[in-house]
């Protein structure tokens, strides 16, 4: 016993043991089983191998394609919104001008939404995007001369509500990422550029954005995962996993429906495997294309 406690050779393994056990018991074994199950029909605990039937069924399943389309669309649009907008906000906060108190208040206000649970955020947004004339977003719509809109009944307006929720919750966090990235850019770069007569906008384009690349890569990567894995936002906004014409159904929502609500474990596992492959492919492609691996290898 004494020798174990003093052994420098054994100690590291004992330190990381909890992680290895967690990895094995709660990740590798379940995911491995799920992979096996995707080739099975699982009924009341009885599993029979059915080859690639689940995958073939999935290929022909229109609802799955719709869910995939919804998830992809959401993922792309959250990236389109949640990269440039926070970047501009961070640039505004980062400028040397300005009242520090206003900036501190701004940062805190934008950050607070990230502290809310998806349940509370979903309840509030459901009520803000309610159908009645007097609901907040309909009052906004009326101000701009249209509406009232039945937000959650229609595909595109439902998507708008989902994106508004994402924008509200994550703008602050992404702004903080970009702000941290900007503060690590040496000020000499900007001084040199302004001596050369570059405008603020040119500086942003040619100094800030290139130097923010690692931050951008990081934010985009987590947004790809987060976007494709989106489920609870929709679940809360539509007060459950069903929405008109499945307009709010995502891949995870479909997986939840098949696996947990309908207990069709084999088929749901196939959904999970396909999603994992899609996510990994997108991310590897993106990381290779953006040169992240090259940099780390060097």
């Amino acid at each position: 016993m004494r020798q174990i406690l003093y052994s420098k050779r054994l100690a590291p393994y004992l330190f990381i043991l909890p992680f290895l056990v967690t990895l094995a018991v709660f990740w590798i074994v379940p995911i491995g089983r799920s992979f096996v199950m995707s080739f099975q029909e699982v009924l009341y605990g009885q599993a029979t191998f059915i080859g690639t039937d689940n995958y073939e069924r999935l290929w022909r399943d229109r609802v799955f394609w719709q869910a995939l389309y919804n998830s992809m669309r959401y993922m792309i649009l959250t990236i389109v919104l949640l990269v440039p907008i926070p970047m501009v906000l961070a640039a505004v906060v980062n400028s040397k001008l300005g009242n520090p108190r206003v900036k501190a208040f701004f940062k805190a206000s934008l950050f607070v939404p990230a502290l809310t649970s998806v349940v509370v955020a979903g309840i509030v947004f459901r009520l803000i995007f309610a159908e009645s004339d007097s609901a907040m977003m309909n009052q906004v719509a009326e101000f701009f001369g249209f509406g009232p809109v039945r937000w959650l009944r229609e595909d595109i307006t439902g998507l708008v509500a989902l994106l508004a929720l994402a924008l509200w919750r994550w703008s602050g966090v992404n702004t903080m990422y970009f702000l941290a990235g900007m503060q690590s850019i040496p000020t000499e770069y900007y001084e040199a550029a302004s001596i050369d007569g570059a405008s603020k906008f040119q500086q942003f384009l040619h100094i800030t954005i290139p130097n923010l690349k690692p931050t951008i890569v990081y934010v985009v990567t987590i947004s790809v995962y987060g976007g494709l894995a989106m489920f609870l936002e929709s679940f809360m906004l539509y007060a459950g996993n069903s929405s008109p014409n499945n307009q709010g159904l995502t891949v995870i929502g479909y997986l939840y429906r098949k696996g947990i609500e309908e207990n069709d474990l084999g088929f749901a596992s196939a959904v999970g495997v396909v999603l994992l492959v899609i996510v990994m492919t997108i991310n590897l492609t993106y990381l290779i294309a953006s040169g992240t691996f090259k940099k780390e290898a060097a």
Binding site: P30, S34, M37, Y225, G226, A229, I252, Y256, V279
Partner: peptide
């Protein structure tokens, strides 16, 4: 980088 949502079903089972 792997979101919990992807582990959800296997872990549940």
């Amino acid at each position: 980088t792997v979101p919990f949502e992807m582990l959800m079903l296997p872990l549940y089972v």
